[in-house]
Design a protein around this nucleic acid. Structure first.
Length: 1059
RNA sequence: GGGCGUAUAGCUCAGACGGUUAGAGCGCAUCCCUGAUAAGGAUGAGGUCCGUGGUUCAAGUCCACGUACGCCCA
């Protein structure tokens, strides 16, 4: 029985109430792709200023998770925002392809373990598998990236493994080399002597085991300084759990600010930290009274424990180090620079040599006395026994602690000095600090906090890795030790004397290229290392273009960048490598603004892991709730820079509270714009000027402009949470106040100036909020835009201009008045609910007590009477003082300003005063006199909070000094008006349940058994007819079919039939 | 062990400048309203604002110390 649909005559495509958000998103994706919207957004802004975004390449290792969505939403939202503001935002995708995680994954796939296996398998084939593994995972990332609506150019993505990329990295390394900042030095690495390989931090974490080691306290006789004397009866007492490192003891470290004491047992003297005296020596020992600050002990020499290895340079003295603690041991720390990173740093600062008698397989050099050929850990026993025999051992115990083992073979690891390549970042530390001070961090505390701290403690960048799948270090060395650094394949070709343009610049192929040493002509071979992948990614601003060998101009036009974003764990990763590489190469940082995100946790507050079974798979989440819901969560739930928990419930709430509320408002608009006297864009021109519109409309325009200004400011500050909150509140206000209060004006179609104003106002608000939300939820806004857009507007919201909020339309006073109006309505609802009189029953009068009530315009007062269904609204003061109770409360904020310490006394006086008298005084003169501690004090109106309540016969609700009182007395007329409302509701229900369209006209028949109801229907027949779209209302029963509805309570029966 | 961050209702989170009644949503209970809505409204239950100390007339808010958790680094 429904009419033929006539979509072509309607101004707006329908936005059905029932909506499948993920389904819409797929349609939008297809439309974007088909109409090349992303490409056109770039084309359209080509003449505009550049706003440069750099994509931090995800490691294409493993499958993408929801945490990847987080950063990618932020990488998308600001470029979209800036694009709408007219900037040209180039977005080149990128993939981090090299690195240990890839190697480990491939090792597992192939069932290989360790470098011997890999070399037996063949490096060429191994690296080919790595490349293939990376490409496989890139596909999964690409699919997720597209599905979530992240606009980034993946067709021209850079890949860190591509030859052009590698060449750019080589170029940068050559630049750094030519500045003298690329050097070879020892590096302490966790090392497995069985596998013959170093382990990464990540691998290290896999292999901690609890073991028991010897814990020995050893005497180091002092040979110079105030305690030195013939016979050497004074010794430094040194503690260690790795006796095997004593063989290469080089120095002893003390803390400069710790106090050391000398203790004696009558025969010898030992030096320990004061705090550890009793713990280490205890009974039988007493202090000699000699005390030294660590700083005073510097350069005291001592007799080293073993004379097994030779030192070519002076060593074996006391040095100072801040890392020494007095938590364990003796406060004097044995130093063996080949076997500890701290030791290495400290000893190097004193110019001490690195002596390492342990060979790569973990055994002592064969020729050594006592320990020659022994595995390092096995040597402990013999060494301790020897110390004991020579009287140097003070005490030995067992020590249980957690020690790293190889995760592959469980061999205890060795911290081991290996030759390594470093970048001397410490040489540019001041420049880095300077660059950091110019960088905008979001949140701001990272700059001086976590990141600043990292920079201030900068150490040289250990660049090389003894691995296979990485950018080969472009260093060639000849037998004479001359070093050549190569900056490109063509340069390498020139040196090698053949064309290497097509060479894959990876191992093993580059390893096979030998060149003639430019200095001596001898054969130079490449050093075996590859480089840290962080250098790869830090080089992306130029390497993504292959610059400077290629696209030099493009690179220059896109450098430095305005914006990068990653999670907080990148402070020492990509955020650092990006700043460090470009500062090293160009002298300044590559980015100006950096957003630093917190991590996404599972609903249970833990990290997502397969093991815990709490993983949310991003594609599944997006198919269930929609990408927009997931995006909104990332952008606007909680603070993006704190850890956040994600779950289905949170996403469902976003769909209901934000997305559907917004969508339904648009749906409401199109429903009525398409109904009856249709409204279309041409009627926008007929709408009254904003200043001439009803106050409700002016209020909405004020709000939407305030929100537009606020969202713009928030987005400029990279603050999506604030933007999201502003938008959520606005959408709620729009739907649940503006539309709710304006419904009648829409029902009529655009037939009156008031209705025309309502349509225009709602349209403008929807248009603006759609634009404002477009960068955050690009799918739903695109869908709504498609339905609402003006004929001359761009076909995509993402091709439209960002709205400029109009300050001149923001009316703060009106906002306050509307807020008061809404507070009074709330109080009225509360009073209604308390009284038990339903809202459909009109009441004659409501009394209002509120400070600014007398200034409330009539149009807003009528919002209150309509909403509360009352006839009249009067100020409480009109009732007469005798019928009203007053209470007064001190306003502490106001009082505190004036009275400070006396505030509590004044407050007490206010509460003790006669409330009515005080109110009368304040109302008459603006001031009231009180006495505080015998002195007169004047109180102003704003310093007290007055609440007034009528005494009897009213339903009252108050809050914060504002009161609403409903007159509950009903007259017969009011009763009949209430019955008429009941009747209308009954008929509306019947219309709805019988499946009528909202615009269908009906004829209505009625018969009543209740005489009061009959009178009410007769009396209000015209009103009822208008409300239920009845062309006629007839008492009696119709002939033929009709929908029938009756109410026993009202004693009435209706029949309705579509006309 | 160090640095940084976080801690507010059962859950997710707001709470510029310190102001005495600490809010919202979800969930729960009862009721109301409804011809856009998967909605809306009212009331209720639910809080030692992580702990301790301090500053202040006044502290969820500022300071110090501690606890728990997270990230990074040893």
């Amino acid at each position: 029985m429904s009419e033929e649909p006539k979509p072509d005559t309607r101004p707006f495509p329908a936005l059905p109430v029932q909506v499948d958000l993920p389904g819409i998103e797929h349609e939008i994706l297809a439309r974007w792709s088909e109409h090349k919207i992303f490409e056109r957004s770039l084309e359209q802004t080509r003449g505009g200023p550049n706003w440069v975004f750099f994509e931090g390449p995800p490691t294409a290792n493993g499958q993408p998770g929801v945490h990847h969505v987080e950063a990618r939403v932020f990488k998308d939202v600001f470029p979209r925002f800036k694009t709408m503001k007219g900037y040209h935002v180039n977005r080149k995708a990128g993939w981090d392809c090299h690195g240990l995680p890839v190697e480990v994954a491939v090792e597992k796939e192939l069932g290989l373990s360790g470098r011997e296996d890999i070399e037996a398998f063949g490096v060429a084939e191994f690296n080919a598998r790595c490349r293939e593994s990376v490409l496989r995972n890139v596909d999964a990332f690409t699919a997720m990236t597209e599905r979530m609506g992240y606009w980034v150019n993946m067709d021209e993505a850079y890949r860190t493994m591509d030859p052009e990329y590698v060449e750019s990295v080589w170029w940068a390394l050559k630049e750094i080399w030519s500045k003298g900042l690329l050097v070879r030095d020892y590096r302490i690495s966790p090392y497995c002597p069985r596998c013959g390989t170093t382990l990464s931090d990540h691998e290290l974490a896999l292999g901690y085991e609890t073991v028991t080691d010897p814990s020995v306290y050893v005497r180091f006789p002092v040979t110079s300084g105030p305690l030195a004397e013939p016979g050497g009866s004074a010794s430094l007492l040194v503690w260690t759990t790795t006796p095997w490192t004593l063989v290469s003891n080089t120095a002893v470290a003390v803390h400069p600010d710790v106090t050391y004491v000398v203790a004696t047992d009558g025969t010898e003297r030992l030096v320990v930290a004061e705090e550890l005296f009793s713990a280490v020596l205890g009974e039988g020992w007493e202090l000699t009274g000699e005390r030294f600050e660590g700083a005073e002990m510097e350069h005291w020499t001592y007799q080293r424990p073993f004379e097994l290895v030779s030192f070519d340079e002076p060593a074996h003295f006391v040095l100072l180090a801040d890392y020494v603690t007095v938590g364990d041991g003796t406060g004097l720390v044995h130093q063996a620079p080949a076997f500890g990173a701290d030791d290495m740093a400290t000893c190097r600062a004193y110019g001490l040599p690195v002596v390492n008698p342990v060979t790569a397989d973990g055994t002592f050099e064969a020729g050594l006395d006592l320990v020659g050929g022994l595995f390092f850990k096995t040597a402990d026993r013999d060494l301790v026994a020897d110390l004991e025999a020579r009287g140097l051992l003070y005490r030995r115990t067992e020590y249980e602690h957690s020690y790293p083992h190889c995760w592959r073979c469980h061999t205890p690891l060795l911290y081991y000095a290996l030759p390594s390549w470093y970048i001397r970042t410490t040489a540019v530390k001041d420049q880095l600090l300077e660059q950091n001070s110019r960088t905008n961090w979001y949140p701001g505390n990272v700059r001086e906090g976590r990141y600043g701290e990292w920079l201030r403690n900068n150490i040289d960048w250990a660049l090389s890795r003894s691995r296979y799948w990485g950018t080969p270090l472009p260093v060639w060395e000849c037998d004479e030790g001359h070093t050549t650094v190569v900056g490109s394949l063509s340069e390498l070709g020139e040196l090698a004397g053949r064309d290497l343009g097509a060479l894959d610049p990876h191992r093993p192929y580059v390893d096979d290229v030998t060149v003639a040493c430019p200095e001596c002509g001898g054969t130079a071979r490449r050093v075996p290392e590859v480089i840290d992948v962080w250098f790869d990614s830090g080089a992306m601003p130029f390497a993504q273009w292959g610059a400077p060998h290629r696209n030099e101009e493009t690179f220059r036009a896109n450098f430095p960048g305005q914006y990068i974003c990653e999670a907080i764990d990148q402070t020492r990763g990509w955020f650092y490598s990006m700043m460090a590489v470009s500062t090293l190469v160009f002298g300044y940082s590559s980015y100006e603004n950096v957003v630093c995100l917190g991590h996404i946790l599972a609903e249970d507050g833990r990290k997502m892991s397969k093991h815990l079974g709490n993983v949310l798979e991003p594609m599944a989440v997006m198919e269930r709730h929609g990408a927009d819901a997931l995006r909104w969560f990332m952008l606007a739930t909680g603070s993006p820079w704190t850890p956040r928990r994600i779950g289905h419930q949170a996403l469902e709430e976003i769909v209901r509270k934000v997305l559907l509320t917004y969508y339904n408002t648009a749906s409401f608009f199109t429903l009525y714009a398409n109904t009856g006297e249709a409204w279309d864009h041409q009627k926008l021109a007929d709408a009254p000027a904003p200043a001439d519109r009803p106050l409700l409309d002016r209020w909405l325009l004020s709000e939407v402009n305030r929100v537009a200004l606020g969202v713009d400011e928030a987005m400029e500050n990279f603050d999506t949470a604030t933007a999201g909150r502003l938008l959520t509140t606005f959408v709620d206000d729009l739907s649940n106040w503006y539309v709710r209060r304006s419904r009648r004006r829409f029902w009529a179609g655009a037939t009156t100036p008031e209705s025309a104003s309502a349509f225009a106002t709602l349209f403008e608000a929807l248009e603006t909020v759609t634009l404002l939300m477009a960068p955050m939820v690009p799918f739903l806004t695109e869908h709504v835009w498609g339905a609402l857009r003006r004929p001359d507007a761009p076909e995509s919201v993402h091709l439209a201009q960002w709205p400029k909020g109009r300050q001149d339309l923001v009316d703060a006073r009106l906002s306050e008045q509307m807020a008061l109006t809404r507070r009074l309505v709330e109080l009225g609802r509360s009073a209604r609910a308390d009284s038990g009189v339903r809202t459909r029953q009109p009441l004659s009068r409501v009394l209002v007590g509120a400070a600014d009530f007398d200034t409330l315009p009539e149009q807003l007062r009528s919002q209150i009477t309509d909403e509360l269904n009352v006839v009249r609204l009067d100020p409480l003061s009109s009732v007469g003082g005798d019928l009203v109770d007053y209470t007064v409360k001190p306003n502490f904020r106001a009082l505190g300003r004036r009275f400070a310490k006396r505030t509590p006394l004044v407050a007490e006086a206010i509460q003790a005063s006669d409330a009515k008298g005080l109110v009368d005084q304040v109302r008459a003169t603006g001031w009231a006199q009180l006495e505080v501690e015998g002195e007169p004090v004047e109180i102003s109106a704003e310093e007290v909070l007055v609440t007034e309540q009528p005494r009897e016969g009213w339903a009252v609700a108050s809050d914060s000094g504002e009161t609403i009182a409903l007159d509950l007395r009903l007259t017969p007329e009011l009763r009949r008006a209430g019955l008429a409302r009941e009747v209308i509701r009954l008929v509306q229900d019947a219309r709805k349940s019988s499946g009528l369209d909202i615009a269908d006209r009906i004829h209505l028949w009625w018969s009543a058994t209740d005489p009061t109801t009959a009178q009410a229907v007769t009396e209000h027949a015209e009103n009822i007819a208008t409300e239920v779209l009845a062309l006629g209302v007839t008492e009696g029963t119709p002939e033929g079919d009709a929908h029938t509805v009756s109410s026993e309570e009202l004693g009435v029966t209706f029949h309705l039939r579509k006309v």
